[in-house]
């Protein structure tokens, strides 16, 4: 049997838009094919959810935010012109949804609860007190997560998109709608704050 076509493994579904698949699905969805949009949701739900989770550190809230982001993306799909890739556009919506939600929550909390930053510091302290219940590794991870949550949103989103989701600077700039120089400086400041807080909390980094 003569080999006509070399068969190779395809990319994983969660990889970025290989062969224009996303663009094709977007066009289908723009024509009203909800199943095509469902494919896009399936493809990016984990990354969007993980980003939301790293931004709010709460599973239920992250699920709400991710779903809201996808619904909002569908509602805005007619305005998506394909100038950027779908996934950066999707991340931009998700980040905006998360930041808007947290802003609303902060406003509500400021009326009847202590400030968020204080809460964040309490969680760092709580993590420090929980050493006995966790392995050293878990403890370090919890400290990092608590410190991450303490970061101001504008720094946290950059840190999450870069170090957690692996976007490059240009993609992050597209997501947050800021120049690359801003991304670079915010990322450095975010990492520096994390390093400083972790050092203060007893790590010898």
């Amino acid at each position: 049997m003569r080999p006509i076509v070399r068969r190779t493994e395809t990319t994983e579904p969660n990889e970025r838009d290989v062969g224009g698949v996303d663009a094709y699905l977007v066009r289908c969805a723009q024509r009203g094919d909800t199943s095509a949009f469902g494919q896009l949701v399936t493809k990016y739900q984990d990354r969007v959810f993980n980003t939301c989770y790293r931004m709010c550190h709460d599973h239920a809230e992250a699920l709400d935010l991710a779903q809201s982001a996808f619904v909002k993306a569908y509602e805005s799909l007619a305005r998506f012109e394909g100038k950027s890739s779908f996934y950066t556009w999707m991340f931009r919506i998700a980040v905006n949804v998360v930041i808007s939600s947290r802003r609303r929550r902060r406003t509500a909390m400021s009326l009847d609860q202590p400030g968020r930053g204080e809460s964040g510091r309490r969680e760092v302290a709580a993590a420090e007190e929980d050493v006995d219940a966790n392995s050293v590794r878990d403890e370090l991870r919890e400290r990092l997560e608590a410190a991450l949550e303490r970061l101001p949103d504008e720094f946290r989103v950059v840190v999450v998109l870069k170090d957690v989701e692996g976007l490059d600077y240009a993609e992050i700039a597209e997501v947050i709608g800021a120049p690359i120089g801003t991304v670079k400086s915010r990322l450095h400041r975010g990492r520096s704050m994390l390093r400083e807080w972790l050092t203060d909390s007893g790590e010898s980094a």
């Binding site: 949701v41 739900q45 993980n50 996808f70 870069k162 170090d163 957690v164």
Partner: peptide, 29 residues
Amino acid sequence: KLRDIAQRLGALPRQNAPLDVAESVLAAL
């Protein structure tokens, strides 16, 4: 130190969405 922070952030466990996110979104739509 910066590299250490970046690597530790990258090593944080990924939180995968429940499998039915797409269904939920499509149901909402």
